[in-house]
């Protein structure tokens, strides 16, 4: 039976992990590779590196960081932030990323999803979608696109996305819990895996999103980064709640 995944997400700026509260107040919490390795030990199922400054400062993702992480991790690594072209995809994958996530660039050029999917396989094409209500946002939530959430995610699936990373702009950074309603709607609209993101403040939030929606994975940041819980703590509670998960 396929397991529900717990994916620590490391927001990265200038080679360091940060976690933004509503994407603004940034607090440095350390070296991404060291932290990722610690999460692997704790039984994380995957790790996401998100270069949050890349999009608006037009910086390229930090490729040497990917290389160092990929050399040391034996779980999948997804990289996002500043990926705009097929060449960016190729470079991230060549450095050892297993999946590449695109957000603003997919909205600007939806064909990038199709091209990347045809060239590298849909399994490595993750479309990150930031949304509030029915609206899709880009540029870290600063710009409304006019796209309808459900129309956009179904378009992404048709174009060849392998996975949707859905972030609720309402929940993100608040620690008030995942956006159950939005996650449920999206997970029921597509037939590819959906990762719930934004708002996780306690283990119960993760249990809720798995119990109340058909999502496949939960992205977690602050809860782990600030040491309020380990991945193992989460897995123990998931087991107790009857949610199928991987234990080492």
């Amino acid at each position: 039976m396929l397991k529900k995944r717990i994916i620590p997400c490391l927001d990265i700026m200038d080679g360091k992990v940060v976690k933004g509260v509503n994407f603004v107040d940034l607090v440095d919490v350390g070296d991404p590779v060291a932290i990722a390795m610690e999460y692997e030990k704790q039984c994380a199922d995957e790790v996401v590196f998100l270069d949050i400054t890349a999009s608006h400062e037009k910086r390229r993702t930090i490729y040497d960081l990917i290389e160092r992480a990929a050399a040391n991790l034996s779980i999948p690594l997804t990289v996002g932030g500043g990926i705009r072209t097929i060449d960016d995809f190729r470079r991230a994958l060549a450095c050892g990323a297993d999946k590449v996530s695109i957000n603003s660039s997919a909205v600007a050029n939806p064909n990038l999803i199709a091209e990347a999917s045809a060239e590298f396989g849909k399994q490595c094409v993750v479309v990150a979608v930031d949304a509030r209500g029915d609206d899709v946002y880009i540029k870290g939530g600063r710009e409304k696109t006019g796209l309808d959430l459900i129309e956009w995610v179904t378009t992404c699936e048709k174009l060849g996305a392998g996975e949707i990373l859905l972030t609720s702009m309402v929940g993100d950074g608040t620690q008030n819990g995942y956006d159950i309603e939005m996650t449920k709607k999206v997970a029921e609209s597509v037939n590819i895996p959906v990762i719930a993101s934004g708002g996780c403040g306690k283990i119960g939030d993760i249990i809720d999103v798995f119990k109340q929606t058909n999502c496949d994975a939960a992205l977690v940041a602050s809860l782990f980064h600030y040491g309020m819980a380990t991945v193992d703590d989460v897995k123990i509670k998931m087991k107790e709640a009857g949610i199928s998960c991987r234990r080492v």
Binding site: P76, N191, I192
Partner: peptide, 23 residues
Amino acid sequence: QKLPHMGWNTLEKRDGDVYFVHS
């Protein structure tokens, strides 16, 4: 079910979880 079959699934004989990504 969803494709790709993506994520950790159990090797039934070995009884351990490993990572799959394929359709």
